[in-house]
Design a protein around this nucleic acid. Structure first.
Length: 136
RNA sequence: GAAGUCGGCCGGACAGUCGCUGUCGCGCUUGCGCGGUGGAGGAAAGUCCGGGCUCCACAGGGCAGAGUGCCAGGUAACGCCUGGGGGGCGUGAGCCCACGGAAAGUGCCGCAGAAAACAUACCGCCGAUGGCCGCUGCCCAGGCAGUGGAUCAGGUAAGGGUGAAAAGGUGCGGUAAGAGCGCACCGCGCGUCUGGCAACAGGCGUGGCAGGGUAAACCCCACUCGGAGCAAGGCCAAAUAGGAACCCCAUGGCGCGGCCCGCGUUGGGUUCGGGUAGGCCGCAAGAGGCGUGCGGUGACGCGCGUCCCAGAUGAAUGACUGUCCACGACAGAACCCGGCUUACAGGCCGACUUCACUC
């Protein structure tokens, strides 16, 4: 049983809430059902048959040059995700930061990520104003 | 006290809450819970050198290629470090130097300058010597002697000027003017002696003096070097397809059909090896840290005691809140070590130097 199922207040972030294999990442890339695009990031989402939401981070060295900054963005993403994960359904989510995000001050990054998860939640609830065709 | 040189060290602290991850214990059952206990750096960086480790190659030797380049030592090894020598900079503590060879050959040397490499002579200086011309004297129209001109031959490289660099420098003598032409000292070459493992230094003697620079230009000499890298390499191993061996059945299975005949189609089972996804090992006890004793000028070595100090793999060490201050730089392990180089807010400690002041 998933912990977040009977305890919605839990903010844990175990392996079951993460994408762990290359195949799982490829599945989302190949057939994203939701897409939230922003100046500094891109979210791709795809519903699945499992229990809760799962997060995958794709932080390209090409976009964020320094390793310290890549780590920072990943940490902020995970931290905000684990707090807002219960609001999401059974979806696989990919987070891809874009060039320039590492240059923002830390508190800006945190707010940006919180808004991102909120936007995704809304999009999923509303069925999506701009659903990505699964075939493309 | 001010300015500076060298060496070493730290690089936000504490508390609470919510998380991640290694490991140990227990439970639960297997990518969960609880508890204990670890969890980035001085550069983890650049990937510029050197090793370990792994696989491949390998009789010996040579060539090519790459690297290194004063001497001695340290080291697993180095292009690193230590000590020493030489040269340069600084009042000094100190700092800097690819620091072998240009009498093996080749190439290149802008501008300026007369000339940039078999040395020559633009301006200049001289014109002793031999001519020429003038004057004077002697004597047989010519000659001889004296004197003047700077006119020709010629002598010269001291001085001027150019340059990073023009056949070593200073002084005296010398001369027509000059010149290592001669001498003294310094420099250089050769010989020799002394000190030193050596680089080299010093002394003595001797030669008037070789001849531009450039070798991070080719090159020569000496020494070193096999290749690829943890996605190395090894182990376990689904599903699917194909392969091999053995056994079984070819009166069999499947399809058409209500069934038989018939027609079409096709073997079945077990085991094995290769191998994909995936997983595991490699993967952290080491040229290890700290303390201490001894040897050494030192790098370092040897001995003893003590400690275990990240090990992720879609990739962990973070977030929030509060308190405090000098208000927080550069930056993130990915097989492991030794170096070098580069980045870095601020701060601490020690040794030394110069200047100033007090006594």
């Amino acid at each position: 049983m998933a912990p977040e199922a009977d305890n919605p207040a839990s903010n844990r972030f175990p392996r079951s809430l993460r994408l762990l294999k290359s195949a799982e990442f490829q599945a989302v890339f190949a057939a994203a059902e939701q897409r939230v695009s922003h100046r500094y990031y891109l979210l791709l989402a795809r519903t699945h048959s499992g229990a809760g939401p799962r997060l995958g981070l794709v932080v390209a060295r090409k976009n964020i040059r320094l390793a310290t900054r890549r780590n920072r963005i990943k940490r902020v993403a995970r931290e905000t995700f684990r707090h807002q994960a219960p609001g999401l359904g059974a979806v696989d989510v990919l987070f891809l930061p874009r060039r320039g995000m590492d240059a923002l001050p830390p508190d800006r990054q945190t707010r940006l990520l919180r808004e991102a998860w909120r936007a995704l939640t809304k999009a999923l609830e509303g069925g999506g104003p701009r659903p990505c065709s699964p075939e493309s």
